[in-house]
Structures are given as C-alpha cells and as structure tokens.
C-alpha cells in the first residue's frame, strides 16, 4: 500500500516537511526507548502521535524539541539538520514546545510566566496582548502564582505562551493530562484555531479521540516505533486494540 500510494502521488515527493524526524534512536542511559522513529509534520498540518504509555511518544517529542539528544538519526527543521541543537536555540527559531504536565513555572506569577515567553522573540506587550485577549481569566489572575491556578487555567497559561510567540511549529505533549474532558475539548478547540492560522502542530496524546477531531494525520506508536500512520478515521479503528489489548 505504501508503494502504491507513493506512485499515485509522485508530485509530492519533493514536499518538504517543516519538521521531520528520520530514523531517531534514543536511549536513557543504556536503555534504548526509541528504535528508529520516522515522522513528518508538513506545513500547516496537525499531526497526532498516539499510543499507550511507555511507547516513547514523549521521548519522541523531547528529541524533536531539542531537550534530548538522539543517539542516532536526525531532526530536520525546514529542511535543515538541527540534530543536537540546544532546545533554547530551537525555541528562538520558531519551535514552541508545551511539555508534558503543566508547561508553566508554578512558583512564578502568571505575568512572570508570560515574561519568560519573551525569550523567544516577542515583546512583552505583544505577549500580554495576545494572552489576555484570548484568556481574559488570565488577566484577572496575572499576579497570582501559576501553581495556584486550577489545572485548566494552568494549561491555558501554557497555551497562551504558545499562541503569543506565534510559532511556526508547535509541539504539544499530553495536553489533556489530569484535565476533565470538557476542558480538554475546549483546549483542542483552541489547538484547531491555532492550526487554522497556519502553525504546524505535532501533538502527543493519550486522550485519543479528542485529538483525532483536530488532527489531519495520526500516527500510532508502540514500543518505540511508529507502527501506523494514517488519517484520523483509519487510526481510530485501531485504537481500542492498541490501548486495551483488544
């Protein structure tokens, strides 16, 4: 099926992904957790990376954002090899990452959290304008410690940062972790809007069905390998088996 599709769409062989992982292997100490992951994020698309716990989804994202150095393979950003580039340099090059859990500094106030977003290039005025316009609640709570916000508000704050710096690539890790489904749905509504504005998004998620609603492409990871890539509807059929052992 791979070969067949390739042949029917020869025009896209030169299609250059904005972010691409090629044959990524990565290990914690001596334990290899990624055994050659290939993944592409084309410009302006949302790619959902799904899979059970321990499959290596988060590790894949860690490699993509530069926090973890792969033992082999390469990371390409707009066609350039950026393997081994520091996370802060990637962040300044337009790759914004909202990591697993709460992508916030709990002991900093809301405003101070937003101040940190200015490292990626946006001015504080710009960041605040975008963040408070979108999430008025954050404005009310700007001098409150981020750690005292509710889970949903914390995730909003993290998203606000992602929005404000206007990134080319947005990497999202377990956006839904510890949040009620309603909140998650709202959050994914925002992800959809960000995607519409042209940002390419790679989202790692366990909360499978919600993310499939906004994704253009979905991939299933199991045991350190991308087992299947397909449209959300194709992937949805496989999910139950991958998660609950069918």
């Amino acid at each position: 099926m791979t070969e067949a599709q390739r042949e029917t769409h020869p025009a896209h062989e030169q299609a250059e992904p904005l972010l691409e992982l090629r044959g990524i292997r990565a290990a914690y100490g001596t334990i290899e957790v990624l055994h050659g992951v290939d993944l592409q994020v084309l410009p302006g698309t949302v790619v959902a990376l799904l899979g059970p716990n321990g499959a290596g989804k988060s590790t894949t994202l860690q490699v993509a954002c530069g926090l973890m150095k792969p033992s082999s393979g390469s990371v390409l950003l707009a066609g350039r090899d950026v393997t081994g580039v520091r996370a802060e340099d990637l962040a300044r090059c337009g790759v914004t990452t909202i990591p697993e859990g709460k992508g916030i500094f709990p002991n900093l106030t809301v405003r101070e959290n937003l101040l940190m977003a200015t490292y990626a290039g946006a001015s504080m005025r710009q960041v605040e304008a975008v963040a408070y316009e979108r999430f008025t609640r954050l404005k009310e709570r700007r001098s409150q410690l981020a750690g005292t916000l509710s889970g949903g508000e914390q995730q909003m704050l993290a998203m606000a940062r992602g929005l404000a710096v206007d990134p080319a690539v947005l990497l999202l890790d377990e956006l839904s972790m510890g949040l009620a489904p309603l909140v998650v749905e709202e959050l994914y509504g925002i992800v959809g809007q960000i995607a519409k504005s042209g940002t390419s998004i790679l989202v790692v998620e366990q909360f499978a069905r919600t993310v499939l609603g906004v994704a253009d492409v979905a991939a299933i990871m199991v045991n350190g390998l991308v087992r299947k890539v397909g449209t959300p509807s194709e992937i949805e059929q496989e999910l139950s088996a991958a998660y609950l052992g069918g």
Partner: peptide
C-alpha cells in the same frame, strides 16, 4: 497528499490527508 517516510524499522508510513 502522501507522507513518505524512510521505512527503516518496518513501520508503516503512508497516509491520506485532508485539508486542515
């Protein structure tokens, strides 16, 4: 469009795609 990916570890890697 079609995503192509090097198939180094035997993973399936091709996909249909609709407008975002």
């Amino acid at each position: 469009l079609v995503l192509t990916a090097a198939d180094s570890a035997g993973s399936l890697s091709s996909v249909g795609h609709s407008s975002p």
